[in-house]
């Protein structure tokens, strides 16, 4: 029978706290940057210019069809060889995480906008709205509601995906678990604590998302 001993883990509470902070930082940072990238790429996908559309699509497929872990390693170890400048692990981490999630967000945004019926565009146009006004006032608010479940789902995945940047020694939660494990030889306690921390943060978020979704359904 395994003898659980959380004492050693509790002694390293400061490491877990720093890890937690960095996990949140990289999650929020990459989501914010990812939304910006996603919007830009989404509108590029809807562009009238074929070159712009193809460029946006190529970016999306490259980042959607290669593993995030490989991307992180590539940006940290391979890219510096190409450009001749070494990249800080934090820069490589935020860059890769943002580009990765941005590719998925762009698809969610594009799908949401494309799902709005042509009649809505026509009704807005018939009132004399410009394309921008119609997009802001009529199309995006409706599309946002439809995008929300997929957006939240992708963001939850993103939260957990930040654990992958531990491979380039960014000191987020999963990395700290490895550190504590290395110091104490207590993998069961270290990784269980980390798993519980991820769960405790994400579970309330998914519950809140469900409530938000129900709240937004009032006009249906």
């Amino acid at each position: 029978m395994y003898h659980w001993d959380f004492q050693v883990v509790v002694q390293s509470w400061d490491l877990f706290l720093i890890g937690l902070w960095l996990t949140l930082l990289y999650t929020v940072g990459s989501i914010v940057l990812g939304v910006v990238i996603g919007l830009l790429v989404c509108f590029a996908r809807l562009s009238d210019f074929a070159v712009v559309r193809i460029a946006a699509r190529s970016y999306q497929e490259i980042f959607r069809c290669t593993p995030l872990l490989v991307q992180i390693l590539w940006f940290y170890y391979a890219l510096p060889l190409l450009i001749g400048v070494s990249i800080d692990n934090s820069v490589a981490a935020i860059l890769t995480l943002s580009l990765y999630v941005g590719a998925f967000y762009a698809e969610i945004f594009r799908g949401g906008i494309a799902s709005i019926e042509r009649g809505q565009h026509e009704a807005a146009a018939a009132l004399g709205m410009s394309g921008g006004q119609a997009m802001r006032r009529i199309i995006l608010p409706q599309a946002a509601k439809r995008m929300l479940p997929a957006f939240i789902n992708q963001s939850v995945i993103q939260f957990k995906n930040t654990s992958l940047i531990s491979v380039i020694s960014v000191g987020e939660l999963a990395y700290m678990a490895a550190v504590v494990n290395g110091e104490t030889y207590r993998p069961l306690e270290a990784y269980t604590v980390v798993a519980v921390l991820y769960f405790l943060l994400l579970f309330p978020l998914t519950q809140m998302a469900d409530r938000l979704e129900r709240h937004l359904r009032v006009s249906d």
Partner: peptide, 29 residues
């Protein structure tokens, strides 16, 4: 844009804005 400010249109399938109330639909333009 100016043409459509002077020439209104009503559609077969209404095309009301579902995320806006009746009053909000009417004041939108």
């Amino acid at each position: 844009g100016e043409l459509r400010r002077h020439v209104g249109m009503v559609f077969q399938h209404f095309n009301l804005f579902p995320h806006k109330t009746v009053l909000e639909n009417v004041i939108e333009g």
